[in-house]
Amino acid sequence: MTQGRFVRNLIISLLLIPSMTFADNIDNSRKAEILSNLKQEISEQYIIEDSIPGILASLDSLSSTDFLVKLPDGNKFAEVINEKLKQFDRHFSLSWSNPNEISTKPRTESYWDRLDRKNSGFSKVEILEGNIGYIEFWGFDRVNVKSEQRVANVMSFISETDAIIFDLRNNGGGSPRMIQLLSGYLFNERTQLSSIYWRNSDETEEFWTSTDIRGKKRPTIPIYVLTSNDTFSAAEAFTYDLKSLKRATIVGETTGGGANPMRFVDFGDGFIAGIPYGRAINPITKTNWEWVGVTPDIETSREQALETAYISALNTLLNVSRNDSQKIEIKNKLKDLTAH
């Protein structure tokens, strides 16, 4: 075969190779190293120390050569480990992205970037008939000048309502600082909401309602929080705090059950693990909602949660309102809602 024909055939052969890049395949020694590093990080950082032996034993069961051979690519390897870890704590994670892949896709937007771009998660704010404020938001943004102003705008819009419904049915959580800021509008006095014990520093950090409030406080009006099984993490903390302090009525489904905040650890080659290293502690219950979730005061489906809370709020206001026009408005709305 001539050299030119050999080169041409070689190029054709390379073009016929599947699109998977060589970096997609992680050799067994590297996978074993990642498992070993992951177990070490869990041993040193994971917050529920009594559970560590069981987690390590579970990961050991995945470390055999025969098993690793069945997971040749990084993505599948991470998926299997991720699924195993979440059996112990829903905040655990292991993800993989190909560091050598030249992608034509746009860079994946982070949760925080998305919150910043989309009004800090506030997707709907309105005043329902009967003078009830309704606030729907899907995340707890980091607290900064921009997000503080957005919260102030939201709370200003519903500042003259007689009750508030917070809709957290699609809220995946976020920053505990936002919990402090929002809760600051709902209490007259500075109030402790929770604490978090950090294992790495062996310190306990207390979280209190914010005193830096821009606008009117609403310390006495009825508060309702809508929940679903997708309500998670900081959204659960907000719900649990208000329920424990008897400041809100929770309506909907039991929440997801993720109470332990996590930190990310980069293992290189595109592997990043999320390891829970803190434990939320409520000052009243002395515990949290890990795995069990936050149980609602009024249990109903996520689809019926808003209507159920709305009817409850209307009935409450009907009993206390001194405004005849408002009472007529409430009665008419209750008639509409209960007619079907």
Rank of each mutant, 00 (worst) to 15 (best):
N28V: 15
L181F: 09
L182Y: 03
G172N: 10
I132P: 00
V151I: 13
D336T: 11
I102Q: 12
D89Q: 05
D73Q: 10
F271E: 00
D24R: 10
F264Y: 15
N315H: 07
W112K: 11
F232E: 05
V69I: 15
Y240S: 03
F88C: 05
T2V: 10
L68A: 04
E83V: 11
V151D: 00
D212I: 10
I11T: 10
L10T: 11
V145N: 14
N188H: 13
S210G: 09
G274S: 12
P18I: 05
W291A: 14
Y224I: 01
F271L: 05
R169L: 07
D202Q: 11
A280F: 14
G130T: 04
I102D: 08
V80P: 01
L16R: 14
A280N: 14
Y46F: 14
D269K: 14
I12V: 14
E189Y: 10
D162S: 15
S147Y: 02
H340L: 13
F140W: 08
G258E: 08
S321P: 02
I135E: 01
D212W: 07
D266P: 05
T108D: 10
K84S: 15
N229W: 07
A305F: 02
I102M: 09
L226G: 01
D116T: 13
S97P: 04
V292D: 12
I55T: 01
F22V: 14
Y224H: 03
Y224L: 01
